[in-house]
Computed example of a mutant assay.
Amino acid sequence: MMKKAENIIVGISIGDLNGIGSEVVLKTFEDARMLELCTPVIFANVKLLSFVKKSFPSASLLHGIDKLDQIVAGKINVLNLWKEGVDLNLGTNDPKAGEYAIKSFVAATKALKEGHVDVLVTAPINKYNIQSEEFKFPGHTDYLDQELEGNALMLMVQDNLRVGLLTDHIPINEVASHLTEELIIRKIQTVKQSLIQDFSINKPKIAVLGLNPHCGDGGVIGKEDDTILKPALKKIFDKGTLVFGPFAADGFFGSNQYEKFDAIIATYHDQGLIPFKTLSFGKGVNYTAGLNKIRTSPDHGTAYDIAGKGIADFNSFKEAVYLAIDIYHSRSQHTEISARPLKTKEKQL
């Protein structure tokens, strides 16, 4: 049975304390109507967030709790992960802030894994100051891939625009060597399954962008599109997946060709993220597809340059909360439909 809206518990990791994470989280739930959509639980410290609230007009009240069984619907719950005071150095790259960011993220992930929260929304971290002997991951996605079941894939979402990646945080000069038939098939199947269960699209159409300029121009500007991408896409298409390409990336978005597809898969990070962020107007969401749990995040970073000034735009974070809730509903409906027994027509006598 599906949960009532307000009973969907949204776990929130606080991100880098010296960035805009705390501000955009609190601004998102300043509107009381948000508490009719879900019950937020922020993994941080209530005194710290009360201090952050002073940097912008706020009438919301924070509800501090010490255990997850103390969550109250209709309140902005803050789980006190630490008791000590924290010295903020807003706008600075501080390893101490990284420690608290990871403490929040690891605890929120554990709560998600154990079912104490239904979805996870993560505020931005700094990939440099989070590194330690205990945490050696480039970012959120790699850790979630280890802790949760499935195969994580970064899927950027804004309304009907969805952009996934075959490779993500690797140097450009290593992209070609990472493209294999096995990787391409696995990533496309992950996107297809996500479109079906997370976005309720029964027969999704997927476009794949070529690696080289003009898809290699028949091998003149690189052979990977002809020798790796095309054979893999044909194999997937022949098995019933509506996948098309490779398409030359330079004119694909400018010509609005992307609007014909339910998702676009880029071969490397900037090929997909530059057009996505240009088109999403600050409302884009980073969704980790392919896992057995739901995690979203805003499409921006820590924004040290405006931290503590009270001027951070919270729209992307709010959209991340909306998307997490929408996917939760979509998955619940998909599970219910899949569990129903097939009805057969009785033979007429």
Rank of each mutant, 00 (worst) to 15 (best):
G218Q: 15
K113G: 00
T267Q: 13
Q271P: 08
V24C: 12
K110L: 10
I20A: 01
A312S: 13
V175W: 15
V86A: 01
D142T: 01
G308M: 09
K127T: 02
E182T: 02
I12D: 08
L279G: 12
L349A: 14
V121Y: 07
N212W: 14
C215N: 15
T296K: 09
T39A: 03
L349S: 12
D168M: 04
N93L: 09
K54D: 08
E114P: 11
L323R: 10
I196T: 06
F281E: 08
S13L: 05
D198I: 10
S177L: 11
T28P: 11
P275L: 05
L242H: 13
N212H: 11
A111G: 08
G219E: 08
V117M: 06
Y100T: 15
K75C: 12
G216Y: 15
I327G: 13
T28M: 10
I185R: 11
D142L: 01
N126I: 06
K345Y: 09
I311W: 04
Q271L: 05
K67M: 10
D217H: 12
G251P: 14
T92K: 15
A289C: 01
N286L: 00
K277H: 10
V157E: 14
F253I: 00
D270K: 02
T28W: 09
K127G: 04
A59E: 14
A32K: 04
L195Y: 01
D145F: 07
G216S: 12
L242G: 04
E346G: 12
D94V: 04
T302S: 03
K239G: 11
A232Q: 07
E336C: 10
